[in-house]
Nucleic acid binder design. Sequence first.
DNA 1: TGGAAGTACTTGAAATGTCAACTAAATAGG
DNA 2: CCTATTTAGTTGACATTTCAAGTACTTCCA
Lengths: 159, 159
Amino acid sequence: MGIKLANDLQVEAWMAFHAIRVNVIPPLARHLSEHCGLSEAEYQVFIGLRSTPEMELKPSQLAEELGWELGRLSHQISRMEAKGLLMRKQCSVDARSCFIGMTKKGKALIDKALPMQLKEVKRLFGDALTNQQMKNLIEISESIVEHVSRTTTKELTTK
Amino acid sequence: MGIKLANDLQVEAWMAFHAIRVNVIPPLARHLSEHCGLSEAEYQVFIGLRSTPEMELKPSQLAEELGWELGRLSHQISRMEAKGLLMRKQCSVDARSCFIGMTKKGKALIDKALPMQLKEVKRLFGDALTNQQMKNLIEISESIVEHVSRTTTKELTTK
DNA sequence: TGGAAGTACTTGAAATGTCAACTAAATAGG
DNA sequence: CCTATTTAGTTGACATTTCAAGTACTTCCA
C-alpha cells in the first residue's frame, strides 16, 4: 500500500520522465501566455508550421507532426483563423484538403514569441544540464522514438 | 526560414524531450482508457493519492503533487466523486479543507489498472532503453527538478 | 477579542479538447 | 463509367480545463 510504485529501474525511469514534465511544462506555458499572449496550443501550431520550409502544411500533416487528432486541430485552426493568426488556402491537387498558412499578424507574433520562449526553455531546462546530459537525453529520445515507431508499425502490419 | 529552430544543444535537448512526450503519452493514454476505462486525469489522481501511505491527501497537497491548479482538481474530484471513485472526508483540524480518499470501487479500479499500465509503460518506454540510458534519464530528471525548484524559490524570495 | 488580511477550496462561465457523425472528394473494381 | 469504399476534413454535442470570483474558515495583530 502506498508510496513506492515499484522498485524497478524501468518504472523509476518513467517516473523521472514524468517529473520533468510536471516541473517544466506548466511554468513554460505560463511564461508563454504572460509574456507573449499565446496559448500552448497556438504556439505548437506555429512551431509545427515553421518546421517546413514553406511554412504551410495540410491539416493531416500538421496533426501528425503535433501528435494531435484531426478534430482538435480543425477547431484550433478555426479559432486561430478567427483571431487572424492563420488562414486556410485551397489545395488544387486535392479539393478535400487545404493548406494552413500564417497571416502576417501570426508570423509577426511567433517571430516575437519564439526567441522569448527559447530563452525561457534554456533558463528553466537547458541551464540545468551539462553538455553530456543533453547528449544523453537526445540519444534517449532517439531510442524511444525509434522503438515506438517500430512497435506501432509492427502492430499495424500484423493485424 | 522554417525547418531548423536552432543549432543549439540546449534547444536540441528540449526538442528531444518534446519528441518523447509526443510519441509516448498519447498511446499510453489510449491504452489506459481502452483497457482500464480510466482517463489520464483519473489515473493521475489515483497515483497521486497512492503516493502517500494513508492514500489520502488534501486537495492542495494533491494539486502540488500533480502540478495541477486547484480549480481543475476540485472539478476532477467532484466528477470522480459522482462516479463513486473518490470521497471527500472532512478535516477536523482545518474546516476549510478536506481529505480526498478512494472508495472501495476506486481502489479496486486502480489496483487493476496500475499493473496493466506499468506493463504498457515498460513495453513502450522502458524496453526502448538500456540500463545506462535509464540511469542517465533519472540523473537528468534530478538535475532539472532541483534546478527548477531552486530557480522558482529564488524568484519567490526575491520579489 | 475583534476585524483585517490571508488561506483553502469551490463554483460558474468561457475556452479548449474529445468523440462520433457528417460532407464532399478521391480512388478502386467491376 | 458508375457505384462502392476509402480518405480528408469539418461539425456539433458533450467533457474537461482555465480563469476569475465567491465562500468560509484561520491567522495575525492592535
